[in-house]
Amino acid sequence: MEQRLVGILLNAAAHRGIPRGKTGWESLACYEEAAAAYGLTPCYLKLSDINPGSGYSIAYIKGPRGYKRMAVPIPQAIHNRAIYPPGNAGTERLAACGVKVFNRCSRYGKDEIHRLLELDSELRQHLPDTEAGNEGLKRMMERHSDLILKPRRGSVGKGVMRLRREDKESWALDYLHNGQMITANIDPSRLPFPLLDRIDAESYLIQERIPLAEADGRPFDLRVTVQRGWGGEWAVTGLFAKLAPRGGFVSNIARGGEAAEAALALEQAFSSRAAAHYRMSASWLALAVARCLERSLPGLADIGLDIAITQDGQLYFIECNGRDQRYGFYKAGLPEIWKESYRRPMGYARYLLDGGGMQ
């Protein structure tokens, strides 16, 4: 019987490591188990091997003796797990040929996401105060005493800095360098040129720092994975807590943060009843964000959203990750949810192959 193929579009490093089983945290075994449940065979692609003109691609497919590169018809449903900005010519060309590439873009500017959500009156109240540029930095320093400076297109917490008021005369700039926290005293009347240069180039956003709830003295936020599955509807696959290191302000796992079950972290910060309420509220907010963004971002289907909860129970949207790092579920001791984060996209692929439409 002819195989029904689903494409998994990987970045070059992960694709190169397939024969050696070195694909980082992309679990090919999870893809294969999930795809099989929907009667599909995954084939692993990279963009340069796809030839829309011929209708064929070179792909890795698992056989009895391991992974083999072979020519296959271009799969009509492809899940993008590589990092491409909006308007990438390769993915746009595939879409123009009728291939259903979901999560076509996997890296959005933080300012773009903030702007889209700000248009929604219900979501606006869940956004931190945000500006850009040197004039924006000055205004934010007048309005707030604690700020987060983050790259517009950065990921896994790289390059994030904290600027906080020490007293009337001075501020402190905190940043990570070679895994160590560095603090520099800043004269607000003479901000250092390297900082101003980054801000002036508008490569950074300036946001008020949200006073995060703490579990055992460690600030944390929630990563909520929201995906489309069979039927095409959005659903929350799961969520876990990301705890910052003691004395730190960045909760990203790649920057020294720790993954933990959301319920455990929330119950250390709040009563059991309040913890359950905030867990459901974070899921509601994540779904509302996904439904808002889908109106402007074609092909959106698989995202990880960072949701902050303050010590007094206010919820804030922090960030949208177009290529969700699912391994947090594994590190949090939630292997079934980790596997489910692979199953849902394969269910969505089957839905598309059976004639379902993409939003």
Rank of each mutant, 00 (worst) to 15 (best):
G157A: 07
I74E: 03
P188M: 08
T183M: 06
F193L: 15
A132E: 05
D174F: 13
A77Q: 12
R162L: 03
G179Y: 06
Q180N: 10
A82P: 05
S121K: 05
H114Y: 15
E112D: 15
Y108P: 08
L191T: 01
S189M: 12
V101D: 00
R162D: 03
L116R: 07
D174T: 10
N185A: 15
E92P: 01
H177S: 15
I83E: 05
V156F: 14
K150I: 02
G136S: 10
L176S: 09
E135I: 10
K168E: 14
P86R: 11
G154D: 05
G133R: 06
T91Y: 00
S145N: 05
A77K: 12
N103G: 08
R107M: 13
A132F: 02
S57H: 01
G136N: 08
A95K: 03
S170K: 15
E169R: 13
R165V: 10
R152H: 12
D49A: 15
D120W: 04
L117M: 12
A132P: 00
L137R: 06
R165P: 07
I186W: 00
Q76F: 01
P73N: 02
Y84A: 12
V99M: 07
G55Y: 03
I58P: 03
D167Y: 03
L149K: 04
G53V: 06
D49L: 14
M70N: 00
M161I: 07
A95W: 00
I50V: 15
V156H: 14
N134P: 11
S145D: 06
E169H: 11
K110H: 04
H126G: 11
D187K: 12
R165I: 10
V160N: 07
T91E: 00
G66I: 07
I113N: 03
L163Q: 04
N185R: 15
E112C: 13
A172F: 10
G55S: 11
K62D: 09
F102Y: 01
R81C: 09
L117D: 09
L195D: 04
N178I: 13
C97A: 11
M140H: 04
R124E: 11
R107L: 15
R65P: 05
C105E: 09
H114Q: 14
C97D: 09
M181H: 06
R124K: 14
K150L: 01
M141Y: 06
L196V: 08
A172G: 11
P151R: 08
L173M: 04
L127G: 08
P73H: 01
M161E: 05
R139N: 15
H126T: 09
G159M: 02
E135H: 08
Y175I: 04
F193N: 14
R93L: 13
L147A: 10
E135V: 09
K168Y: 07
V99G: 07
A96G: 10
M70Q: 07
I186H: 00
L137P: 06
R143G: 11
G179W: 03
A77S: 15
Q76D: 02
R165F: 04
R107Y: 05
I148D: 04
L173Q: 02
M161H: 05
G136A: 11
L149A: 08
L116C: 06
N80Y: 00
R93T: 13
